[in-house]
Design a protein around this nucleic acid. Structure first.
Length: 426
DNA sequence: TCTGGGGTCCTAGGACCC
DNA sequence: TCTGGGGTCCTAGGACCC
């Protein structure tokens, strides 16, 4: 029997009728966040890496960045999104590994199963985060604290750990979950939300990024309490039509429900981009890179059974600026043989002498539902209403070989000049 | 030391139509 | 011929998230 440990940000106010071991007033919404998730999975799968600084991310020699650092590596100052080169300087002895998404997805699924076993009201936010509603009386009459404690303990049986924030709203629980990582359970009791939020920096609240923070600072607003007290005009100048919703969130009075996602679950776009170890300066290299990225997008579209109508090409130049250009196709497709030429035409719109390409990306979006598809008499359309080139069959055959033997085995000649790291082959 | 890769959502302007 | 207004589609860009 695990002993109940938790952090209460504020002393219990028994007078208000809230008691840890008694009743919980109002909604009980939890946010579960897996601790250093990718790094924890790697340490689970490689016992020899446990207890050592571990970095999941791109190669330091190739403009990579840190995806996740284990807590041992974080002690050296390494954190997500830091360039791998800097991480290596801070922690030269760290173990490095690339990410293994299929494995992360598998474990994430097991965690979601645990949540689903405790309550039907689960809203998955990302691969390592989910909200869950355990309001007493909605599904179970058990104390929210006991349920949260049990979830935490069941997750640890998988060999990874999580932190949980528990309160009456999503905003507060999300912030609370960050307070005591790893393996924390932070409870903000009903009635104490406002006092908990007031002194916090505006950046603590999700939805406020660097840009909104700067705008708020110009208005003299630094804390969530100041957002709660700000004039409607000031808030509107920063948040537009979301001003009053942001105020409610900052006051701890948000009432947005945990929505088990079905429709919003659907994929809206599929894209692939690559930062090259050395800039591309030859148009032929850029075209070859486009083909490589497009094949990856095509493969994922076919795997998901999706076909889209908008092609987007994204580019970053060596001197920092970037551009995105997009074009709508007359018909949807999942066939890179169709959208590669469109991508080339989009590259034409910004290509010129002396251009150095640091990053190139390709994306497909605008997935129509089958009943909304329009066709004409002269276009061959498959049973899902998508157009395909004669070479799509070849693409599908390559998909199958890759499924079976791994992605490095076979590919078109046009993509063979780059390996998966985007490094030019010599 | 600069700043990856996968996404979502929103805004704004211009074209075009009624 | 001039005028205005509204709606929708397309495109580009930006903010934000993990």
């Amino acid at each position: 029997m695990s002993e109940i440990e938790h952090t209460c940000a504020f002393p219990l106010d028994r007078g208000a009728g809230n008691n840890l071991f008694g009743c919980w007033l109002g909604p009980a919404i939890g946010l579960l966040d897996l601790d250093a998730f990718f790094a924890s999975v790697e340490q689970l799968d490689h016992p020899e890496w446990r207890g050592r600084p571990l970095i999941v991310g791109g190669d330091p020699e190739e403009r990579g960045v840190v995806s996740t650092a284990s807590y041992e590596a974080r002690r050296f100052g390494v954190h997500s999104a830091m360039s791998s080169a800097q991480a290596r300087r801070l922690c030269p002895d760290a173990v490095w590994t690339h990410s293994h998404f299929d494995r992360y997805r598998e474990l994430s699924g097991k965690v979601m199963d645990i949540l689903a076993d405790e309550t039907p009201f689960v809203e998955r936010v990302s691969i390592d985060e989910a909200f869950f509603d355990i309001t007493p009386g909605r599904y179970s009459c058990e104390s929210p604290l006991e349920i949260a404690e049990r979830i935490r303990s069941r997750v640890s049986e998988l060999g990874i750990t999580c932190s949980i924030g528990l309160s009456t709203s999503k905003t507060v629980s999300k912030i609370a979950s960050e307070r005591d990582k790893p393996r924390g359970l932070t409870v903000i009791l009903p009635g104490t939300e406002k006092a908990f939020l007031r002194p916090l920096s505006v950046r603590a609240m999700s939805g406020i990024g660097a840009s909104a923070e700067a705008a708020l600072k110009r208005a003299g607003i630094h804390t969530l309490g100041q957002i709660a007290d700000a004039s409607p005009a000031v808030l509107t100048s920063v948040f537009g039509c979301h001003a009053e919703r942001m105020r409610l969130r900052a006051k701890g009075e948000e009432r947005s429900p945990v929505s088990p996602v079905d429709a919003s679950d659907e994929i809206k776009s599929v894209s692939c981009e690559r930062t090259f170890a050395t800039d591309l300066t030859e148009r032929s290299d850029v075209d070859a890179a486009l083909a490589l990225l497009a094949e990856s997008v095509g493969r994922r579209l076919r795997r998901h059974g999706l076909a889209g109508r908008t092609v987007t090409v994204k580019v970053k130049f060596s001197f920092g600026q970037g551009r995105t250009v997009q074009r709508k196709l007359p018909h949807r497709t999942d066939d890179e043989n169709i959208f590669i030429p469109v991508g080339r035409a989009l590259i034409d719109t910004f290509w010129g002498p002396g251009i150095h390409v640091r990053l190139l990306g390709v994306g497909i979006s605008d997935f129509e539902r089958a009943e909304g598809i329009q066709t004409d008499l002269f276009t061959e359309v498959d049973d899902r209403g998508a157009v395909a080139s004669p070479r799509r069959d070849l693409s599908v055959a390559i998909d199958q070989v890759r499924e079976k033997y791994g992605s490095d085995v076979v590919g078109y000649g046009r993509a063979a000049r780059f390996d998966n790291g985007g490094q030019r082959r010599h």
